[in-house]
Simulated scan of single mutants.
Amino acid sequence: MTNSEVVPPEVTEKLRAILTEAGVSDNKKLVRRLLETGIGLGVDRTTRLDLKIASAALTEMRDAFALFAPFARTPKVTIFGSARARPDSPAYQQTRHVSAALAERGWMVVTGAGPGIMQAAAEGAGSRSSLGVSIRLPFEEKPNSSIEGSRNVAMKYFFTRKLMLVKESHGFVYVPGGFGTLDELFELLTLQQTGKAEPTPIVLLDEPGGRLWHGLRDFAEGQLLPAGVISPDDFDRVLLTDSVTAAADEITGFWRNYDSLRWADDRLVLRLRAEPTAAEIADLDERFGDLLTSGGFRSRGPLHREIRDDDHLGLPRLVCRFDPFKVGSLYRLIRALNNLDSAPDAARPEQLH
Rank of each mutant, 00 (worst) to 15 (best):
S55T: 14
D310E: 04
T74Q: 11
F179W: 12
L313W: 00
T47V: 08
S299W: 02
G195W: 07
E350S: 12
T37N: 14
D290H: 07
L239V: 10
Y92N: 04
K14A: 14
S134D: 13
A264R: 03
A64G: 12
L303E: 00
A101W: 02
E198V: 09
V110T: 10
V203R: 08
L58K: 07
E275C: 08
G171K: 08
S82C: 10
L272K: 00
T37A: 14
T74G: 05
A343K: 00
V175K: 01
F186Y: 11
G178L: 14
P316F: 01
N339L: 11
A220V: 15
K162R: 09
G106C: 13
D310C: 00
V153I: 14
A154R: 07
F68L: 12
F325S: 15
L30T: 12
R48C: 09
L165F: 08
R84C: 14
A121M: 12
S127H: 08
G289A: 12
S55P: 00
N27W: 04
P316C: 05
N3A: 13
A91W: 03
V327M: 02
F172G: 04
L58I: 15
S99R: 01
D323H: 07
E280Q: 06
V269K: 00
D345M: 04
G23P: 12
A282G: 11
D259Q: 13
A279Y: 02
V31W: 01
G180N: 11
S260H: 02
E104T: 12
R33D: 05
A85Q: 13
S150N: 13
F65K: 13
V77M: 07
N27Y: 05
A264G: 03
P138R: 11
A247L: 13
E207I: 13
K162W: 06
K76R: 12
L205R: 01
